[in-house]
Design a protein around this nucleic acid. Sequence first.
DNA 1: TTTTAATTTTAGATTTGTCTAAAATTAATT
DNA 2: AATTAATTTTAGACAAATCTAAAATTAAAA
Lengths: 226, 226
Amino acid sequence: MKVSVSKEDHLKAIFHLQQEHGTVTTNALAASLGTRAASVTDMLKKLKEQKLVNYERYKGFKLNNEGKKAAVQIIRKHRLWEYFLVKKLQFGWDEVHEIAEELEHISSRKLIDRLDAFLGHPDTDPHGDPIPDSQGRLQVRRQVSLAELPLNKPAQVSGIASQTSEMLELLQYNHIRLGTRLEIRKKFPFDHSLEVKVRNRPPVTLSAQVAKNVLVTDDEPPTEKR
Amino acid sequence: MKVSVSKEDHLKAIFHLQQEHGTVTTNALAASLGTRAASVTDMLKKLKEQKLVNYERYKGFKLNNEGKKAAVQIIRKHRLWEYFLVKKLQFGWDEVHEIAEELEHISSRKLIDRLDAFLGHPDTDPHGDPIPDSQGRLQVRRQVSLAELPLNKPAQVSGIASQTSEMLELLQYNHIRLGTRLEIRKKFPFDHSLEVKVRNRPPVTLSAQVAKNVLVTDDEPPTEKR
DNA sequence: TTTTAATTTTAGATTTGTCTAAAATTAATT
DNA sequence: AATTAATTTTAGACAAATCTAAAATTAAAA
């Protein structure tokens, strides 16, 4: 069966893509959503109609202010639910994405604000991504990928860029998770793989592909309260 | 826009209707769901295909064992979410239905079992309806006549013993019907008449004769543990 | 700058879920 | 028992969301 991809899914995906590339292309969005270019074009017309996106045919597109606000509200819902699942229902941080993907479509605004209060207004979700507050303010944090981290510079894992369950499993296996303090002991130019040292553990080797997707800060760990 | 009514909505509605009437008719289900008879017939064919319902065209229909199991799981989800909303997020008992209606469509079984444990395996939802356990066992409730109901014990009208039109007219006049939640505020020993309070209404007085013929299930305040 | 390639859009086909109106069946009334 | 009424089903219309394939446009290469 052809699975329907909602307006909300489009907004969220555009938001993430435009963070990386400034402007978004039809094909990129289609790939990200697992749909076809033609379907994306159809949706773009609707989003333009609703004044959520700046779009001229054949030129790319990006969210306008209204669109960004809407996208951030969805991200807020997603991350609050992930936090709930991990902190209250004892899920592992690597099992919550799909469930939150469903929960984020629940529409009640009051529900989300109540949930936020119940959780104590958390700052960051279980993957280390910041949770927008009820005004839609998204705290920006300076993150670099592990691949860019200098040798021997202590850092802390603050986010995972690509949250496939395969990736999360690999990290889990290597005892790398949010908040883990580590540093790079050696870089192998041949394949850009890294030897990484975590305190109290033997060193592990990570591929360049993994390193690109592990985000770190030299900053403080994510706090529970705002 | 024509709003789509899911398979799950149909199962739940059939379940409730067949509790009352044993077998369900096309029109009754359509009315209950706010759709049309033709749409119900379409869905019935699919449910029969999936072996969830016993259905012969032009004769009514009812859920078979599989169908009942499925319906009970949905009811379980609905009531657990209602409990969560009221007990953890401080919603009023009268604001949670619509939100739970959305939440009940979240599919993860693990989520529901974890939620159940987090809430302490509650027995009854905020409206006093029993919550099926993880095996789908739905606690049966004991029916007593209103005359036997203790003072101030919340209860729900679940049947009328003598359905003369005079009796029904009297009950109608006092806004008491099947499903009405009420409690006894005062008992007058002189003639065994009762003062009964229905939510959002002024108290009414009922004779012993009427009280004997109104059947209620005790609607005990939700407990935390089973 | 022309040609070729890649991307994006449009047009129209397909699917799905709903509906209306007519036909089939069952129930009620005379 | 025959007629009428009510209910249910079927047939086909309509709307929405998706897709494929072709056309339009833009970008890249020669």
